[in-house]
Simulated scan of single mutants.
Amino acid sequence: MTGAVPAGDVPEGATPAGGYRPPGPGTGLPSVVPAALRSLGVPDLPEGVHPASWELPEARVVVVLLVDGLGAEQLARRSGHARTLRAMSSPAGAEGFACGFPSTTATSLTSLGTGLPAGGHGIIGWQTNWRGRRFNHLAWQDGPDPASHQPLPTLFQHAARRDVTMSTVSWPRYADSGLTRASLRGGGFVGASTHTERTEGVLRAVAQGGRRGRSLVYAYWDEIDKAGHVHGPDSLEWGEAVEALDAWVADLLGRLPAGAVLAVTADHGMVEAPHGSRRDLAHEPALASGVSLLAGEPRAPQAWCAPGAVDDVVAGWRAELGESAVVLSREEAVEAGWFGPVRPGYEERIGEVVAAMLGDATLLDSRDLRPAVLGLRGHHGSITDAETAIPLLVTQT
């Protein structure tokens, strides 16, 4: 096993102990639904899930809006586009709110749905190695059975068993997707393709409160993430997407019943990643040497190696990437807590070598990615505040 990165050698912008301090139990994105359940009067949580260290107001209706790609740093820079969100506040005790590692949608949505970090639920990144081939958790094509791959009960299922009417409002195509079945299963699903349909879907779900009149609604919004990936998180298009979200939130707040709680959060932030800062295994033999499969994401690549090659790959990547990345072996990353406590059997889902890219750098293999992915300007997945800091904004009607 390769020795741990000495604290003094960690590149600028990273913290000691491998470069990342994940949210603790009861904090960060996994704490959102536990806080919502407590707000609704649910007294217990599934085994292993920690109560939130912060509180929402007591309510009979809670709407959790997850805005894909709405990083806290980006929102702060563009707050002029978000008058309604700017008027909302963060709960006491939720300072420094963040997602886990890797800071990516598949992992974060599963943390939201289960109340666990990546190592607890096992959806460790956009891509992983499944039976010797690269498997994409978002597309979920020709992959494992979702309920077997992530067998733990979700918080949505728990809510439904506690007489809380649980509903998801999202794109119709996600109703029966593999990721939904693995991470967000439980309760009803309302398909919504337009802003108007989303509003009506949320209001319809709220009105369907169970015998105790308690409703928990999870709503998903992804246009900001798309704008950031395609145009960059500092682009005009990103700001326009935030304006559209803000207008929608204002309209929804005017139509929710009195006393309803709205909590707005996100799954990750984003950085501008120019192609000139890209490192590519397809063109750099020193980085490709010993790597048999590259998964993860361009800002948080995970490598599986040829037999006996792990130490050489770690050493080679550290030498080649220098201060543009923190590179750890699987054992080092687990020991440093990057994935939180790792459930037995899930270690193999983590790459034998894990890198967190810093600055604006990316690491990928262009032979294995679609042209649309190679053309993206915005990326996420790593340990920087720009990618892990997310908003938690709350208001009660």
Rank of each mutant, 00 (worst) to 15 (best):
V62E: 02
E297C: 01
A227K: 10
G96A: 11
V169L: 13
E200T: 10
R60A: 07
P34W: 02
F135G: 04
V249R: 05
Y218L: 08
R185Q: 07
A182V: 00
G18N: 09
A282I: 13
L152E: 10
L245Y: 11
Y20Q: 02
F339N: 12
E55V: 14
R367M: 11
T110R: 08
G100V: 00
H121E: 10
M357K: 00
F189N: 01
G100C: 06
W248D: 12
T107G: 00
A319N: 12
Q141L: 14
A87G: 15
A372R: 15
E197I: 07
A273K: 01
Q141Y: 08
V49T: 09
G125H: 01
V261C: 14
V353A: 05
A372M: 14
T114K: 05
E47L: 15
G359Y: 04
G378T: 05
D225F: 05
S90E: 05
G239D: 13
L70E: 02
A306L: 15
L393H: 00
A325Q: 03
L281P: 03
A227E: 04
P117M: 08
L70D: 04
P301L: 12
L203P: 09
G24M: 10
A14F: 09
D251P: 08
V354I: 10
Y346E: 08
H231D: 14
A325G: 06
L369G: 00
E73Y: 05
D280F: 01
E73C: 11
P153T: 08
A303K: 01
A72F: 07
A303D: 03
R212E: 15
F339Q: 06
A139K: 09
G122T: 03
S382V: 00
R173S: 08
S103R: 00
S79P: 02
A52N: 14
R185N: 05
D385C: 07
D385R: 10
R38H: 13
L287A: 09
V202Y: 02
E243C: 03
S289N: 15
V249G: 13
A160H: 03
A139E: 08
V42P: 15
N136K: 02
W248C: 02
G269I: 05
S193H: 09
S277C: 12
Q208W: 12
V67N: 01
V342Q: 03
R134N: 13
T104S: 00
A175R: 09
L85E: 11
G322Y: 10
G191N: 12
G239N: 10
E347S: 11
G28S: 08
P285Y: 13
G228H: 10
W130M: 08
D222T: 14
G96M: 07
L358D: 02
H50R: 12
T388N: 06
G187L: 10
S277P: 07
G120K: 09
M270S: 06
A266I: 01
W338P: 01
P307K: 01
L294M: 10
G69C: 04
G71I: 07
A309P: 00
A7C: 07
D312G: 13
Y346R: 14
G96Q: 07
Q141R: 12
S183K: 03
V230E: 14
Q150N: 09
G316A: 10
L109C: 01
P6W: 06
Q127G: 04
A355Y: 04
G41F: 04
G316N: 06
L364E: 12
V217C: 03
D222F: 08
P146D: 02
R204G: 15
L203K: 11
E197W: 08
E347N: 06
G209D: 02
E348N: 09
